[in-house]
Amino acid sequence: MNNSVINKKNKKQHVLSKYLVWGISVVALICIILSFAFPKPFNTVRNGFHCGILPIEKGLNDMGQWFTSRKNLLKKMKKLQTENKELKEKIEDLTESTSVLAQDKYELERLRTLLELQETYSTYDSVGAHVIAKSDTTNIIYGSFTIDKGSEDGIEKNMNVLANGGLVGIVSKVGKKYAVIDTIIEDNFNVSGKSASSSDTCIVEGDLELYDSGLLKLSQISKEALIKEGDMILTSPISDKYLPGILIGYVSSVTDNSDDLTKSGYLTPVASFENLEEVLVIKQLKQDYIEE
């Protein structure tokens, strides 16, 4: 008797959870369709949610920065010690050798071009922001981050983002007090670039398989192009989203393709993605730049 009552109760629970799953599925599907059709109300709700959790995120971010700064300090100390030794040896070498002067000259030239670049950046109005979180909870979407500035700070979609003086990515979504940036290391992320020395164009592509080795893919370089190892790659003026002349990275190798028409290669980005903390968002949009 008792058994049958329990069985009945179990069966009722079973049916109830079945209806529950069906109900939730239907509502979720409707939500998915609605969020495609009318994204605005969903964005408002998401905005509110982000505003609510922002203080906690910022606190956690400060904590993370404290940890990494400690870690970096230790690393730096070790590095400085070895560096010190090396430098002492180098001083002896330097005093003996005059060939170093030539090297210095080369460096001077390089720094000069860098300085010019910096000047072009500084003409753009920009705002600094902290990376506070990853933009997704899974490993499969890996290259996008949330920053702590949003439309209230004048950030708009498609603004360019820099770190360490190099291109990091682009603002892909803007909330009131937060924004999501997509980075150039993301799979299938394309930026058109050009070589600083020869003005040859190329496409810089993010690639999951390559970034583990710290590289990005370079493609669609014409066969006649003079791009060679060590060349600076900047964003190209033909891009519709990226401002011209932003440093992306340095060419690490170039090879001929089997089709004998184009070359491809690899690029080492300037920005470090392993520990993105602070980024610079350029407030100038490419569209406005063209109109001006």
């Binding site: 629970q13 109830l16 959870s17 529950l20 799953v21 939730i24 599925s25 509502v27 979720a28 599907l29 409707i30 939500c31 998915i32 609605l34 969020s35 495609f36 969903f42 709700v45 998401r46 949610f49 982000h50 933009s135 997704d136 909870t137 996008s144 892909s172 979504k173 999501v180």
Partner: peptide, 27 residues
């Protein structure tokens, strides 16, 4: 029932947080 409840709340949190279509993670 508890599994559904946990899944629902997890899904809502992720969907509120991320930029993917709302409802995907809930499902």
């Amino acid at each position: 029932k508890a599994g559904i409840f946990t899944g629902l709340i997890s899904g809502v949190l992720i969907d509120l947080y991320s930029t993917t279509p709302f409802g995907f993670h809930i499902l």
